[in-house]
Design a protein around this nucleic acid. Structure first.
Lengths: 185, 185
DNA sequence: GAAGATATGGAACCTGGATTCCGGTTGTCA
DNA sequence: TGACAACCGGAATCCAGGTTCCATATCTTC
């Protein structure tokens, strides 16, 4: 039987970790996370065998969220906005969630444990969105997934590094998107 | 009097460090650098007071090189190619020199010690190239330096992370450049 | 080629931070 | 409520890497 306080603490740790990891990325310290959760390090370790495991838990959850959004956008019918919105969302996410970006390396995760199916799923989701957008003539037909991924990753990394004010990021993204659109002959 | 073997070793350390830092970035270990230089750690420390100082020395040198190239390009007369070539050069550089990219944070250096004038110089060089290109109608007039820097940084970071084959990076850069060009009405 | 100054190698030391351990608490169940 | 298992906190332990130290080896100079 799992004790009630245990579940409660687990949640607190998760929440604190999400916060701290978002702020400091992979360099965040375990005791800092514990402190913010109002809990001892021991407790953190009781719930997550290792720092990496803790990260994995968080990243996994977040990626799942993104995947859901991708699905929803896809069924919205508007391929052009679906694609650009999703990409934007990823980048914006990166602004806050340092750890996520790290883990987003090549559109997925490889944070050890099996979870690599997420990587595939994310890849598939993006491919679908891209192809739809291309079919709709909203994205030039000659860019492929790897290229998009590289750009996306670059944007996320830049965003993640934090010292850019939002408007600058917006403008940068705008430029990038313009580059992705088909040239008007 | 500086002993001849001392200068020789200094050079060896510098060379090894440039190599190792290029490969592994800031996480490179001091003893690895020493090993590759065929020297003891003590010797490394005799020449560079601290890991950071060693990095600074290398980055400074490299940025100086880039600055020279910027100058040369600028006087070449072709504003459009000058700008795009320079940007490309920086990104390509990033492919090999992890440490550099790190340090290139917002177009400069702040690796502690004073050297921050390089930051200014790099910034000036880029601004000059950008403005020239804009005046020549090769870059849309509505992008500003911060935006370019953000994009540049993103590209460098992506490139730095290494797992992209050259052609992908080329294509990504092409897209980015297209975004920077003025839209043909 | 001897003396003194300067360098060298690399073992020892130190520090920050992850992980482990365990005496003391608290939730659960009868 | 009592007994016991599941949990807790956080001090102690471990470990990886940076940095220091110094006995020994190399220059340089006279």
């Amino acid at each position: 039987m799992i004790r009630s306080d245990a579940t409660r603490n687990r949640a607190k740790v998760l929440a604190a970790a999400e916060l701290v990891l978002g702020e400091q990325g992979l360099t965040a310290r375990m005791d800092e996370i514990a402190r913010r959760a109002g809990v001892g390090v021991g407790t953190v370790y009781r719930h997550f065998a290792t720092k990496e495991a803790l990260y994995a838990a968080i990243v996994t959850a977040r990626v799942d969220l993104l995947l859901q959004q991708a699905d929803r956008l896809r069924t919205t019918g508007e391929p052009a906005t679906a694609f650009f919105t999703f990409v934007t969302r990823i980048v914006v996410d990166a602004t806050t969630k340092k750890a996520l970006t790290e883990a987003l390396r090549d559109a997925g995760i490889d944070v050890k444990a099996g979870r690599s199916d997420q990587r595939t799923r994310m890849h598939e989701a993006l491919t679908a969105l891209l192809q739809d957008a291309q079919r709709a003539g909203a994205v030039r037909p000659d860019v492929d997934m790897p290229t998009v991924l590289a750009l996306l990753r670059g944007a996320s990394l830049a965003a993640e590094s934090g010292d850019y004010p939002v408007p600058v990021l917006d403008r940068a993204l705008a430029v990038l998107f313009d580059g992705l659109r088909p040239r008007p002959a």
